[in-house]
Protein backbone atom coordinates (compact mmCIF):
# COMPACT_ATOMS: atom_id res chain seq x y z
CA UNK A 1 0.00 0.00 0.00
CA UNK A 2 1.39 3.38 -1.01
CA UNK A 3 0.50 5.78 1.80
CA UNK A 4 0.93 9.52 2.07
CA UNK A 5 4.57 10.70 2.09
CA UNK A 6 6.16 10.67 5.52
CA UNK A 7 8.40 13.36 7.07
CA UNK A 8 9.12 12.91 10.77
CA UNK A 9 9.09 9.35 11.95
CA UNK A 10 9.63 7.61 15.25
CA UNK A 11 9.50 3.97 16.29
CA UNK A 12 8.90 2.67 19.76
CA UNK A 13 8.66 -0.80 21.13
CA UNK A 14 5.54 -1.45 23.24
CA UNK A 15 5.92 -4.36 25.65
CA UNK A 16 4.30 -3.21 28.88
CA UNK A 17 1.87 -0.71 30.38
CA UNK A 18 4.57 1.91 30.92
CA UNK A 19 5.35 1.74 27.21
CA UNK A 20 1.67 2.48 26.55
CA UNK A 21 2.11 5.78 28.41
CA UNK A 22 5.27 6.48 26.38
CA UNK A 23 3.36 5.77 23.15
CA UNK A 24 0.70 8.28 24.22
CA UNK A 25 3.34 10.89 25.02
CA UNK A 26 5.11 10.50 21.68
CA UNK A 27 1.88 10.85 19.70
CA UNK A 28 0.88 13.90 21.74
CA UNK A 29 4.28 15.57 21.32
CA UNK A 30 4.11 15.33 17.55
CA UNK A 31 0.50 16.57 17.46
CA UNK A 32 1.38 19.48 19.72
CA UNK A 33 4.32 20.45 17.52
CA UNK A 34 2.04 20.29 14.46
CA UNK A 35 -0.53 22.54 16.12
CA UNK A 36 -3.44 20.11 16.39
CA UNK A 37 -6.36 21.23 18.58
CA UNK A 38 -6.60 19.90 22.12
CA UNK A 39 -9.71 17.90 21.17
CA UNK A 40 -7.97 16.30 18.18
CA UNK A 41 -5.01 15.45 20.43
CA UNK A 42 -7.24 13.94 23.10
CA UNK A 43 -9.12 11.79 20.59
CA UNK A 44 -6.02 10.53 18.81
CA UNK A 45 -4.05 9.89 22.01
CA UNK A 46 -7.00 7.96 23.46
CA UNK A 47 -7.05 5.79 20.32
CA UNK A 48 -3.27 5.32 20.64
CA UNK A 49 -3.75 4.20 24.23
CA UNK A 50 -6.37 1.59 23.21
CA UNK A 51 -4.34 0.20 20.31
CA UNK A 52 -1.04 0.14 22.19
CA UNK A 53 -2.74 -1.65 25.09
CA UNK A 54 -4.27 -4.18 22.72
CA UNK A 55 -0.77 -5.12 21.54
CA UNK A 56 0.36 -5.70 25.14
CA UNK A 57 -2.79 -7.56 26.22
CA UNK A 58 -3.56 -9.63 23.12
CA UNK A 59 -0.18 -9.99 21.39
CA UNK A 60 2.27 -9.69 24.28
CA UNK A 61 4.14 -6.85 22.60
CA UNK A 62 4.44 -4.83 19.41
CA UNK A 63 5.86 -1.78 17.65
CA UNK A 64 4.32 1.62 17.20
CA UNK A 65 5.54 4.10 14.66
CA UNK A 66 4.45 7.72 14.75
CA UNK A 67 4.79 9.65 11.51
CA UNK A 68 3.95 13.08 10.25
CA UNK A 69 2.37 12.71 6.82
CA UNK A 70 1.12 14.89 3.98
CA UNK A 71 -1.51 14.51 1.29
CA UNK A 72 -2.22 17.24 -1.23
CA UNK A 73 -1.88 20.32 0.95
CA UNK A 74 -3.00 18.68 4.21
CA UNK A 75 -0.73 17.74 7.09
CA UNK A 76 -1.51 14.84 9.35
CA UNK A 77 -0.30 12.34 11.90
CA UNK A 78 -0.17 8.62 11.31
CA UNK A 79 0.35 5.91 13.92
CA UNK A 80 0.99 2.32 12.94
CA UNK A 81 0.67 -0.53 15.45
CA UNK A 82 2.24 -3.77 14.35
CA UNK A 83 2.48 -7.00 16.30
CA UNK A 84 3.31 -10.65 15.74
CA UNK A 85 0.53 -11.90 17.99
CA UNK A 86 -2.28 -14.38 17.29
CA UNK A 87 -4.13 -12.12 14.85
CA UNK A 88 -7.90 -11.62 14.82
CA UNK A 89 -10.30 -14.29 13.51
CA UNK A 90 -13.24 -12.05 12.79
CA UNK A 91 -12.54 -8.33 12.39
CA UNK A 92 -16.20 -7.26 12.26
CA UNK A 93 -16.87 -9.04 15.52
CA UNK A 94 -13.73 -7.60 17.14
CA UNK A 95 -14.76 -4.08 16.11
CA UNK A 96 -18.21 -4.43 17.62
CA UNK A 97 -18.77 -2.66 20.90
CA UNK A 98 -18.94 -5.15 23.72
CA UNK A 99 -16.99 -7.95 22.06
CA UNK A 100 -13.95 -9.04 24.03
CA UNK A 101 -11.92 -12.22 24.37
CA UNK A 102 -10.38 -10.93 27.60
CA UNK A 103 -13.55 -10.44 29.62
CA UNK A 104 -13.17 -6.69 29.25
CA UNK A 105 -15.52 -4.02 27.93
CA UNK A 106 -14.62 -4.56 24.29
CA UNK A 107 -14.53 -0.85 23.59
CA UNK A 108 -10.92 -0.42 22.54
CA UNK A 109 -10.77 -1.41 18.88
CA UNK A 110 -14.17 -0.08 17.81
CA UNK A 111 -13.62 3.02 19.94
CA UNK A 112 -10.26 3.74 18.29
CA UNK A 113 -11.96 3.48 14.89
CA UNK A 114 -14.63 5.97 15.93
CA UNK A 115 -12.07 8.42 17.30
CA UNK A 116 -9.88 8.73 14.19
CA UNK A 117 -10.43 10.16 10.73
CA UNK A 118 -8.83 7.11 9.11
CA UNK A 119 -8.60 3.58 10.45
CA UNK A 120 -7.22 0.54 8.70
CA UNK A 121 -6.71 -2.95 10.08
CA UNK A 122 -4.90 -5.88 8.52
CA UNK A 123 -4.61 -9.14 10.36
CA UNK A 124 -3.62 -12.71 9.67
CA UNK A 125 -4.47 -15.45 12.13
CA UNK A 126 -1.27 -16.87 13.56
CA UNK A 127 0.85 -14.08 12.09
CA UNK A 128 -0.16 -10.80 13.64
CA UNK A 129 -2.05 -7.57 13.32
CA UNK A 130 -1.33 -4.15 11.86
CA UNK A 131 -3.55 -1.18 12.63
CA UNK A 132 -3.03 2.22 11.01
CA UNK A 133 -4.76 5.37 12.18
CA UNK A 134 -4.53 8.90 10.78
CA UNK A 135 -5.79 12.30 11.70
CA UNK A 136 -5.65 15.36 9.44
CA UNK A 137 -5.24 18.94 10.44
CA UNK A 138 -8.22 21.09 9.60
CA UNK A 139 -7.36 24.60 8.53
Amino acid sequence: MKGPSSKDSLDISVANYEDVILARQKARELMQSMGFSLLAQTRMVTAVSELARNMVVHAGRGQMSVNSVEKLNQKGIECIFQDKGPGIQNIDQALRQGFSTSNSLGLGLGGAKKLCAEFDIQTTVGKGTRVTIREWKTR
Binding site: R43, G110, K114
Partner: peptide, 13 residues
Protein backbone atom coordinates in the same frame (compact mmCIF):
# COMPACT_ATOMS: atom_id res chain seq x y z
CA UNK B 1 -11.78 18.32 31.01
CA UNK B 2 -14.29 18.96 28.25
CA UNK B 3 -12.09 17.28 25.62
CA UNK B 4 -11.88 14.20 27.84
CA UNK B 5 -15.66 14.13 28.26
CA UNK B 6 -16.28 14.45 24.51
CA UNK B 7 -13.79 11.69 23.78
CA UNK B 8 -15.27 9.33 26.39
CA UNK B 9 -18.71 9.82 24.90
CA UNK B 10 -17.44 9.04 21.40
CA UNK B 11 -15.56 6.01 22.68
CA UNK B 12 -18.87 4.65 23.93
CA UNK B 13 -18.01 4.32 27.58
Amino acid sequence: KKEVVMTLLQLGL
